[in-house]
Nucleic acid binder design. Sequence first.
DNA 1: GTGATTGCAAATCTTTTGCACTAAA
DNA 2: TTTAGTGCAAAAGATTTGCAATCAC
Lengths: 140, 140
Amino acid sequence: MEYGEETTSPIEMKLRDAGLRPTRQRMDLAELLFGNGNRHVTAEMLHAEALRRQVSVSLATVYNTLNQFAGAGLLREVAIEGSKTYFDTTISDHQHFYFEHDGRLIDLGPDEEVAVAVRKLPEGMKVARIDVLIRLVPDK
Amino acid sequence: MEYGEETTSPIEMKLRDAGLRPTRQRMDLAELLFGNGNRHVTAEMLHAEALRRQVSVSLATVYNTLNQFAGAGLLREVAIEGSKTYFDTTISDHQHFYFEHDGRLIDLGPDEEVAVAVRKLPEGMKVARIDVLIRLVPDK
DNA sequence: GTGATTGCAAATCTTTTGCACTAAA
DNA sequence: TTTAGTGCAAAAGATTTGCAATCAC
């Protein structure tokens, strides 16, 4: 492209659409998060990865950014026990397999999804979301 | 009962069976946990309750005790995102409603249970358990 | 007694915040 | 410019740990 040409990358669009200013840090982190397929990361993991890739960001900013992305619907938090918070780059409704022996977390494919239907809800409440976590252990 | 009579309360048996010495603190905490139906508590909550009931235990001991009970299979940890760890006195297979606006966690009744069936499992793996968490928010 | 358990305070770990500085619009 | 975003260090919240005192067996 020529000098002076204006471009808007898909990543930048994604941030703008979410109402977030496309700052250098956010662009870099978004690139790491969304430029490599579906991922499950913690703030610590993403920060370490950024440093490895020569991307300069503070851990505080990684935390803030992950929370902002999650708040904007770009990421989804996943609850597994343990203290760390995992963020999932796949935000559409889906479920997880969790390998208890090695801590790995993967998405279920569309053909593996489990159907869930709630029969009765507490008074005055509605479903925000249903989390399904299938905990696996090695066969026999 | 008469002086000198030996008794072994159900709570004490429970601890002994789990291989835990029935110390005063463990007995008191077990009483609070298991003597009032099904419960979902955090260490902080249980500690506050103990103090209210004139049961003297340190917060550190509450933490240690909850972890020991969980390790012994007397309690089950429930994964919800957020910082606090919840312990559930119901060990058997069941599901949860989580009230996002106030952090309350309750069990689904048998007539509210959601049917879950996994269609396909990763090679060489079997299901250890399936966690279902129904996140609720106030209607409209 | 002897080893397990407890309490307390200090330490750790994860995550959030205050504030001066920098960058985007 | 004006306002949002960032970095850093300090703060906060949850949980664990070290060690001397205490309790169960």
